[in-house]
């Protein structure tokens, strides 16, 4: 069962906008309210909109279970890997080794009240991206699994 043409067209138009808004929340997690989990949940809401609007066969052409599960696994592995990389710098696990170092995300921090600079905060944005990718894949694949239970009834 697919929903009416109005719902399908609205889902088509809204899905890229929701995707970009979620990625914005993930990428600006260290400056504005939000973060990895919230941004991933927003993107998963867009996936849920598409899944509810179409039926199972059409959805699995867009959203592949393999890709989403791979996102989930690679997000978790990346999160642990960013933490473990601190050992290579001679620090303890989860140490923020990039802050103030001048490389990626390592700009010197403007102190006090400021509008914020995207290129700061060390490993916090990297961890935000890892958790965001994990939550995106995980929460979308849960709804896809729910829908796969209905596959026999042609829904």
């Amino acid at each position: 069962m697919r929903m009416s043409k109005i719902v399908r067209t609205a889902a088509d138009i809204l899905y890229p906008a929701i995707l970009i808004f979620g990625l914005y929340i993930v990428a600006h997690g260290h400056l504005t309210p939000g973060g990895g989990f919230q941004g991933g949940a927003v993107i998963a809401t867009g996936g849920a909109l598409v899944i509810v609007a179409y039926n199972y066969k059409e959805v699995t052409g867009w959203l592949k279970k393999n890709v989403l599960t791979g996102q989930e696994v690679s997000g978790l592995v990346g999160f642990i890997g960013v933490g473990l990389l601190a050992l290579a710098f001679g620090q303890v696990f989860f140490f923020n080794y990039l802050v103030g170092s001048g490389s990626i995300f390592g700009m010197p921090v403007p102190y006090g009240i400021n509008p914020g600079e995207l290129n700061t905060a060390g490993i916090v944005p990297l961890m935000n991206f890892a958790v965001g990718i994990e939550v995106w894949g995980g929460l979308t694949v849960v709804i896809l699994y729910m829908l796969s239970g209905l596959e026999k009834e042609g829904c």
Binding site: M1, I25, P33, G34, F37, Q38, A41, V42, A44, T45, A48, L49, I51, V52, L139, V142, I143, M146, L147, G149, L150, E153, C155
Partner: peptide, 22 residues
């Protein structure tokens, strides 16, 4: 508020709608 709006109002409603379809 962001995570509640995304998960509570979005994903839970979607899961319930799929369950009602079945």
């Amino acid at each position: 508020a962001i995570s509640q709006a995304a998960i509570g109002a979005g994903l839970t409603t979607a899961i319930f709608i799929i369950a009602i379809r079945a």
